[in-house]
Amino acid sequence: MRYLICVKQTPDTAELPKVKPDEAASGNLSIQLVVNPWDEHALEAGIQMMETFGGAASAITVGGSGAVETLRSALAMGCKDATLVANTDADAWGVATLLAAAIQKMGDVTVAITGQMTVDGNSGALPVALGRKLGWPVISGVAKVLAASADSVTVERVVGQARHTVQVAAPVVLSVIKEIGEPRYPTFINIRKAARVEIPTWSAADLGVAAPAPVVQMTNWRKPPARDAHVQLFGGAPSEAAAALIDALLAEKVL
């Protein structure tokens, strides 16, 4: 059994406000790049599954040569191996095309795991596109994995205030949410092991597919206008002030 965790290198969320529109359009970012925070939960899920149900957790990413650092982070968290698919132009559908081809080439993947979305693209399209490409079922909103074998996977998924328990035949794509568990930080031993792991690089040609042209065109990048902080003081007796505060929060749809 192999759990393949699909990760992406994205800007550090703390640095996202520094990204300029033209940088975002070109993809040439001059800021700190990290593992997409949502994908860290996916890594945690895959490593937990390896520890609990056996099998091996592997990481894969589609990106440029710098994305190897993201895979080293995944290895340092505990993944057994990692693969880079070299491509810097693909949109979510193209990434799904490449990942699906890589999964078919590997041949032993029983569960593909993704984060809920990425902090740069925010589309959340990848798990669905990947399931479509592979013809595998897709379970979204996964908060807990209850059982996993070569034949089936049982998970708990969150739907609004409710939780569903779902059993599905493997192979399957799981899209996990943060309730799956706090991502572990790497141990120093794993950091050292990660430095020594050979990471193969596959091109689209290696995978037997054409480099996918983007089907989505981003035509306008702009930043939202800066908003001034709004401070409002409520006076009067405490009960009056509290009532006024609640009215204001209701009006702003905070409550």
Partner: peptide, 12 residues
């Protein structure tokens, strides 16, 4: 790069 990963890990 290994030093940087150590730094990141300790920060986290």
């Amino acid at each position: 790069a290994e030093h940087e990963l150590i730094r990141k890990t300790v920060r986290e």
